[in-house]
Structure formats: C-alpha cells, structure tokens
Amino acid sequence: MTPGGWYEPGSSPLHRAPAGGKFAALLVLAAAVFALRSPAWLGAICAAVVLAYGVARVPLRRCAGVARSLAVLAAFVFVLQWWLLGAGQALVVCLRVVAALAAANLFTITTRIDDVVSAVEGGLAPLRRFGVRPDRIGLLVGLTLRAVAALSAIAAEVREAARARGAQRSVTAFAVPFLVRTLRHADELGEALAARGEGDG
C-alpha cells in the first residue's frame, strides 16, 4: 500500500499536461469508444493509445504489467462474447475494453495523486455554494490512507488470533472481531478528530 499508487515519475509531455485536461480527454475518448462500432476505428484508437504509452516513456515493466492484465481480461471477454454474440461483435467489445482501460491506466500512470486532487478541487470549486467542500478532498485522502494502514495492522492481528485458536477457516472468526475492532477504531478516531477541532467549523 503506497500512497503513490500507480504513478510513474517522468517528464514527458503527458506527465506535464494538466490533470484536468488529461481527464477531459479521457472522458472524450471513453465516449467515442462507446459510440463507435467499427473495428477499424476502434483499432485505430487502440493503436493511438499504445503510441501514447511510447510518448509518455512508460517503463517497459509497467507496460508489460498493464498488457498482461488487459490480455487476460480481453481473452476472457472475447471467449464469452464469441459464444454469446459471435466473433465480429466479440472483437468490437474487446477493442472497447482495451482502448478504454489502457487509456484510463495511462492517465493514472502519468498523473500524480496530488495533481488529481488539485484538479478535482478546482473542478468542484463552483459547487462551493451548494455546501460542497472541495478543499477537504486532500484531507479525506490522508485520513483514508491512514485508516487503511491502521486497519491492515488490526486485520493482521485478528488473523493471528484466529489462527492461534485454529479457526483460520471460519469466515466469522476473522470478520467479526475484525469488524468489532474496526468500529472501535472508528469511535476512537472520531473522538481524536473532535478533540483536534474537526467539525468545529
């Protein structure tokens, strides 16, 4: 669990492009992918996305990772669609999957989470008058990442305890104590946040 997530540092034009613009481009691409039905056009989009990976100089190791997971998914989708709808339609669906997912992954690989947060904060700023607090997104990111770390430690402890009682195969022996301690953690965190002035406006 790294706060950095999928981001791959770099200095390509794609890395330097503003996150909001990249996101808008991604949405346009996704809409196009759903609207198009011609395998040739969809294939061209796939090729363009692959080219964009080159422009962004994504390390081969990451490319291979994305390709592998996409290949598994595409194969699964293709077989299923072939059986249900025939080969032609199966190809179209597969190309859609590959184009949309590869482009979305490229966005995540080339955009730092901080920049996404800033872009979202900027994009949501007009909603301020409706009581939305875009400036709190960074705070929510931090709080959630911290909670994931804390709950991971709790989950590991609970699993140890279940194992010690020889109950590692029972779903309730793990999940119930884990949930009880999760709720206790939430209560303690709520008190801690309140003590530190959260909710005081």
Binding site: G142, L143, L145, H185, E188, A192, A194, R196
Partner: peptide, 29 residues
Amino acid sequence: REVRRRVGFVFTNPDSQIVMPTAGEDVAF
C-alpha cells in the same frame, strides 16, 4: 470551538489518534 483551541487532548492509543499517513502530515493537520 474556543475551548478546544485552548485544551489539547492526548489519548491512550496513538494508533487512533494519529489521523494522517505520515508524521509530518499529522502535525500539519
């Protein structure tokens, strides 16, 4: 609000009191 500015609270379990992922971010919070 005014009181909590003047009174700090340290709890028993720091794991639930530390609310941010890194030490610096937690103090900055």
